[in-house]
C-alpha cells in the first residue's frame, strides 16, 4: 500500500429528522474497508451543514442517507447549494428508502448521480465510487 496515494474522501451525511443511522454506519464501515476516508456528520444535519462540511473537508463524494421520506426536498436543495459553492463536480449519492419513481426523477433532473436502496450490495456502492472518482480526477 502506497502511503502517498491519494485517498478518496467521502462525506456520509444524515440530513433531516430521521434518527436511524445503522445503514449509514454500515456503508461508512464498508467504504473504510475499501480504503476510503469517510467523514461522518452524525444525525440531524441541515442541508447547509452538509454542504459546508463537504467544503471544509474537501470531499470527492457526498453520500446522503435519508429514511424519512424527505429526499425529494433535501437532495435537490443540497445539490443546488453544492453547485452554488462551485462543488457541482462532487459525486452526489443518495441512499435510503427511495421509491422507484422518485429515484428516476432525482436522476433525470440531475439531483443525484446515483441512488442506492436497501438490498443493493455494498460492493456496488464501492465499485461505483471507485469508477467515478477516478474518472473525475482524470478529467
Amino acid at each position: 500500500m502506497n502511503a502517498n496515494a491519494k485517498k478518496i474522501r467521502v462525506l456520509v451525511a444524515k440530513p433531516g429528522l430521521d434518527g436511524h443511522d445503522r445503514g449509514a454506519r454500515v456503508v461508512a464501515r464498508a467504504l473504510r474497508d475499501a480504503g476510503m476516508e469517510v467523514i461522518y456528520t452524525g444525525l440531524h444535519q441541515t442541508p447547509e451543514q452538509v454542504v459546508e462540511t463537504a467544503l471544509q473537508e474537501d470531499v470527492d463524494v457526498v453520500g446522503l442517507s435519508i429514511l424519512s421520506g424527505a429526499h425529494m426536498t433535501i437532495a435537490p436543495r443540497i445539490k443546488e447549494m453544492l453547485k452554488e459553492k462551485d462543488m457541482g463536480d462532487v459525486l452526489f449519492l443518495v441512499g435510503g428508502i427511495i421509491p422507484g419513481e422518485d429515484a428516476e426523477k432525482l436522476l433525470a433532473e440531475g439531483n443525484a448521480d446515483q441512488i442506492f436502496t436497501p438490498g443493493d450490495p455494498l460492493d456496488k456502492i464501492i465499485n461505483y465510487i471507485n469508477g467515478r472518482v477516478n474518472i473525475n480526477r482524470k478529467s
Binding site: 464501515r29 475499501a34 480504503g35 476516508e37 469517510v38 456528520t41 452524525g42 462540511t53 473537508e57
Partner: peptide, 24 residues
C-alpha cells in the same frame, strides 16, 4: 485497508456554519 472513519466533527457540528471556525 488504508481507510478511515473520521468521526470527531460529529461533536462539533454546531459550529459547522460559523464562518469564523474551520474544521478539518
Amino acid at each position: 485497508s488504508g481507510g478511515a472513519i473520521l468521526g470527531d466533527r460529529i461533536r462539533m457540528q454546531d459550529h459547522a456554519l460559523d464562518s469564523a471556525v474551520f474544521i478539518r
